Computed example of a mutant assay.
Amino acid sequence: MKQLKHWQDSGNAVLGLWLAFSPLVLGFHNEVTDMGNTVLVGVLLLAAALGGMFVPRAWEDWTETALGGWLAIAPWAVGFTSTAATVNALVVGLIVLTLALWALQDWGLSGGQRPAH
């Protein structure tokens, strides 16, 4: 069976790096809650995406799905104070969620086998 290329993990790894550095770039590094949540999710996303790139398993796609969902609701769940952090979390969270669900769909369409990278 020919396996599909699976590029979504690379995209989520880049987004994880962005999240880790975005408080400095967007200027909300002094907002402890906003920065802490964003950096933590970024590091976890990067770890899950790298796991998916080097040791492909379905767990990392589900982990990325959960992280993307959390990131999209976190500004209201934990009370972000920065507009930049809120917009960043919402937009990146929705992109992560989309990529992760897309990867899960690809995995399901491949007959239960994880698509090759």
Rank of each mutant, 00 (worst) to 15 (best):
K2N: 07
Q3D: 13
H6D: 05
W7R: 13
S10R: 10
A13V: 04
L15D: 06
L15N: 07
G16V: 02
L17H: 09
S22E: 13
S22K: 07
P23A: 11
L26T: 04
G27C: 07
H29N: 14
V32L: 14
T33Y: 09
D34A: 11
D34T: 03
M35V: 03
T38H: 06
V39P: 06
L40K: 02
L40F: 14
G42Y: 01
G42E: 06
G42Q: 02
L45V: 05
A48H: 09
A48V: 03
A49H: 00
L50N: 05
L50P: 05
L50M: 14
G51W: 13
G51F: 12
G51P: 12
M53L: 14
F54P: 08
F54V: 13
V55Q: 14
W59M: 11
D61P: 07
D61L: 03
T63A: 15
E64P: 05
T65I: 03
T65P: 00
A66C: 05
W70V: 02
A72Q: 02
W76Y: 12
A77Y: 15
V78H: 03
F80I: 03
T81H: 15
A85R: 12
V87W: 01
N88S: 00
V91Y: 00
V91N: 01
V91W: 08
V92M: 02
G93I: 08
I95S: 06
L101P: 03
L101C: 09
L104T: 08
W107N: 07
G108N: 00
A116V: 14
